[in-house]
Simulated assay, not measured.
Amino acid sequence: MLEVFGRANSINVIKVLWLLDELGTPYARHDAGMAFGRVDDPDYRAMNPNGRVPTIRDGDVVLWESNSVLRYLAMTAGERGLALYPADPAARASADRWMDWQLSTLSPAERNLFWGLVRTPPEKRDMEAVRAAVAASAACWRILDARIAAGGPYIDGAMMTIADIVLGAYARRWFGPEVAMPEMPQFPALAAWYARLGERPGFQRWVNPKLY
Rank of each mutant, 00 (worst) to 15 (best):
R71Y: 02
S94I: 04
P188M: 12
P209H: 09
W18A: 02
P185D: 11
R142P: 01
E199P: 04
A135F: 05
W64V: 05
V130Q: 07
E79T: 12
Y170G: 01
A95V: 03
L63G: 04
A149M: 06
Y72S: 05
N208H: 14
P121D: 06
D126Q: 10
K210W: 03
T55N: 06
F114R: 03
Q204A: 14
M47Y: 08
I155Q: 00
G6E: 04
N67S: 10
R142S: 13
D156M: 13
G157N: 07
A189Y: 03
L144T: 00
A169W: 01
Q204E: 13
R147G: 03
D58N: 12
I11V: 15
H30L: 07
D60N: 14
A195I: 08
A192H: 12
R45S: 07
Y44S: 01
M34G: 13
R131C: 07
L82T: 09
P49H: 11
G37K: 12
L73Q: 01
L84D: 00
P209I: 10
W64K: 05
V39C: 12
D41V: 05
A139S: 13
A191P: 04
N50H: 11
R173M: 14
F203K: 00
D60V: 07
T161V: 04
I143W: 05
S137W: 01
E3C: 05
